[in-house]
Amino acid sequence: MDIIIPIKQVPETSNVKMDKETGTMIREGVVSVINPLDLYAIETGIQLKEKFGGKVTVCTMGPQSAAKALKEAIAMGCDEGILISDRKFAGADTWATSYTISEAIKQLGSYDLIITGERATDGDTGQVGPGIAAWLGLPLATYVSKISDVTQESIIVERLVEDGYQILQMPLPALLTVVKEVSNPRLPTLRGKKKARAYEIQVMNAADLQLNEACIGLKGSPTRVIKIGYPKVTRSGKIVKASGDTGLNDAVDALLQFLEEKELI
């Protein structure tokens, strides 16, 4: 089973500090990591490979430095890494990004499955996975929480929806976007790290892919950011202390009063 996993490198945001004035994150010194939600896709891909054989190719569109994310994926157990990189790709929105990645995937030969994370934690749109499926005309299952069965020709998955799980059967090749429940990502081993260090990442640029220049980068993006605002997100709410029996009682009474005033009870 040959699997392609498009990933994204994102700023690591879980240990960033907060600006005490505005409540927004301090982005200074933030490092880049594999989008945490892509790790579930990588783990799922590796598990399928371990079960059915084949190879896992991980790819990303980004600057040269995104090669590090690919190497990390290889250290976890992926076999190949493709860096889709060109100055001309800069400023791409989800439409142009999914076009570029799907064109790169066409160059990779045959495959059985494409797996992506649910969305990236920086852009937070979740649009690139479905976009690639649309470009490639592949059957699509989003929010996949479980792979129930895989055969040569088809796959059965459960997808997480608002009030339960929808169970889908679809032919291969197909594209899945997966959620956290699907797997538990492994840590890279020392052997994996050494393999990744020695591995030479293959780079594809706009010319290699013979892309339609009108469809890539900022120029090829239907959407435009026209304004950026920096909202102050702190609220100066009422904070009460519940210490001692009377303090506790008073605090809870004050809360109920607040809820009453706002017509929440």
Binding site: E12, S14, N15, V31, V33, I34, P36, L39, E72, A75, L187, P188, T189, L190, G192, K193, K194
Partner: peptide, 26 residues
Amino acid sequence: EGIGDLCMENGAIEVYVADNYTTQER
């Protein structure tokens, strides 16, 4: 990695490497 090699030579079953924040935190 050098230390990891020493560990493997000295009876470790497996060595996992965490060199970014996500894996280090874990």
